[in-house]
Design a protein around this nucleic acid. Structure first.
Lengths: 336, 336
DNA sequence: CTGGAAATCGTAAACGTTTCCGCTTTATTT
DNA sequence: AAATAAAGCGGAAACGTTTACGATTTCCAG
């Protein structure tokens, strides 16, 4: 269990431990012959540098805190995957925290991460209130958000262009011949306001009348979508397509549609938003608008690295383009 | 950016910084009046203890390395969720690493975690070779595996009883009237050998003849399952049920069955293994054998905590019971 | 009133690095 | 050949804690 330290290899090499440190760090304050000798000795003795001791003096841990509402969520786990890969490629490690359902826990974990001396924090906010919830800490450590929920806040974030996502989605439905499109799902957070906005904008351009069926749910989940759709389908269906605010909602609606024997896409077309991996599954094949999760993650860590390594001040809003993923839940009315 | 240290609050309180440390740590070596005064002062000044400095002296980081092949994988992200929750509840934080597709990267991240001075490692191996791949490190830090791949190795692990899982699954199919059951998928890793074993054992008990359709794939994925099933369905179907070695394989087979217009469960019943969350989706509703991911995760961190905090030597194999999740892909032949 | 135990607090060492400073030795310049 | 620069290395401080040890004070029993 006792690991070998700089002192140990210094003694073995007959040099001071400062020299060993220099040999490892690639400093040019050292002769190339002694460097090689020391490096060889190091892995002979199985030396590995102690990051926590290094952190003590360098004031940098090489740690990035990743806080997500819950990692068992396809969107977040994909983000986490790419973020970790990219971060590690640049010498950073990820400390993972679930911020859980309530703001208290979210605050707790970012406090914890500060105690852990992380160099930066990557956070997908659990609610629009997240910003004020952790505002006290965001000036203590570089932070970038993964959400468009903070439009008017002096915080860095990267996100898809939510508005454009719904915009291109409804345009696509229009091209397919749909003239009565219902927007289904959440509307009351900033992100979802933007999505609704893009839908409205497209409607106006195409001279369609926007129609909403809203939920008061604070969380998009399949079961919430299911419940809401159950309610929706008690009423007559006087529309040919539905734009669901999230894939989860769309999946819930799909289930309710099956219950009600409503054929999708036969009698009703459906499009979602996010392109979580479940949407590609057989028998689902949901047409949807993709959030470029990979790009989001790597751009977020790039942004964070810039803040950390260059001490960049100020904030930047990085908006990524959504793309349409055409699958099997939208019917082309023109080919009738 | 400059944070307040023990010294700062000591100066403000007019005591030595050892006293402040004692006040925070709940030591009895201090008067209750001064303790309260100091504690109040601490959060007035916004003091938070520096974990890396503490780690220097205590030789404990309170960090657990979690290495998974890839976190964007429903099984692993669920494990990660419960592991993080449980770990944090006990004062530990999770350092997340994707071990990627190759053994080299797995070894690299484990080495990295050692440098990071983690107190323990939780690892879901990416291959049966993982054990020898990282054997050099497992005696340097408490390690527990999340896999039944190491039966004969002196390593701690927690896993489902894979053999029992397929055993109860095929018994269930039998009860439903199935007499010709094909086992579909992988067979050549220890885990999958065990699954095949349970199937064979049940077959013998029930006087059925075990039949296999094997893949040489080293990884269970939907697309691999799809390809394999494509091949399978070129031949005549002289069985009434299929036991897929993993849910992923089952999902791929489902797609191939749809392609081939084979009705599931109408003409063919299907059962999977793992109960990844996708299996519960509408239009999928896969009957499957569940791995108790939550229990696995918390038991794994319990085991790890025991090793860390009590220095427990030796190894323990914790086998958890699988449960059958009855959904909609198995037809009851008795109700014909 | 006194002796000693208990309570409270300060001093200092230690953890394993990195890095500044200065010393010696070698190489370069005029 | 002498003066100067540069290269290579050691010494020591510093990072912010915890904790063993020792010193001082308080308190109560005898």
């Amino acid at each position: 269990m006792k690991s070998v330290t700089l002192k140990d290899v210094a003694k073995a090499a007959g040099v001071s431990y400062a020299t060993v440190s220099r040999a490892l760090s690639g400093s040019h304050q050292i002769g190339s012959d002694t460097r090689e000798r020391i490096i060889k000795l190091c892995d002979e003795m199985g030396y590995t540098t102690n990051y926590v001791a290094r952190s003590m003096v360098t004031k940098r841990t090489g740690l990035i805190g990743l806080v997500v509402p819950s990692i068992d969520n396809q969107f977040m786990s994909e983000i986490a995957y790419y973020a970790e890969m990219s971060a590690r490629g640049h010498g950073f490690n990820i400390m993972l925290c679930n911020s859980g359902p309530d703001l208290k826990q979210e605050k707790t974990v970012v406090k914890l991460l500060l105690s852990r001396q992380v160099d930066g924090i990557l956070i997908v906010p659990q609610s629009p209130k997240t910003y004020e919830n952790i505002r006290a800490f965001t000036d203590q450590v570089p932070t970038v958000f993964l959400s468009e929920n903070l439009r008017d806040q002096p915080q860095s974030y990267v996100a898809v262009d939510n508005s454009r996502g719904t915009y291109i989605g409804t345009k696509y439905l229009y091209e397919l011949g749909h003239r009565d499109i219902l927007y289904f799902g959440r509307r009351h957070t900033a992100t979802h306001q933007l999505r609704a906005e893009g839908y409205i904008r497209a409607c106006h351009e195409l001279e369609l009348t926007p129609r909403f069926f809203n939920s008061e749910f604070t969380r998009s989940s399949i079961s919430n979508g299911y419940q809401l759709a159950k309610e929706l389908f008690t009423k007559p269906i006087d529309y040919t397509a539905i734009f669901a605010s999230t894939d989860s909602n769309a999946l819930g609606l799909l289930k309710a549609a099956d219950d009600a024997r409503i054929d999708i896409p036969g009698t009703l077309s459906l499009i979602g938003f996010d392109n979580i991996s479940s949407t590609a599954l057989p028998r689902i094949e949901l047409t949807t608008v993709e959030q470029p999760k990979r790009d989001m993650a790597v751009q977020a860590v790039d942004m964070l690295r810039d803040k950390i390594e260059n001490g960049t001040q100020g904030y930047v809003h990085q908006i990524l383009m959504p793309t349409l993923i055409k699958r099997s839940t939208c019917r082309n009315l023109n080919e009738a």
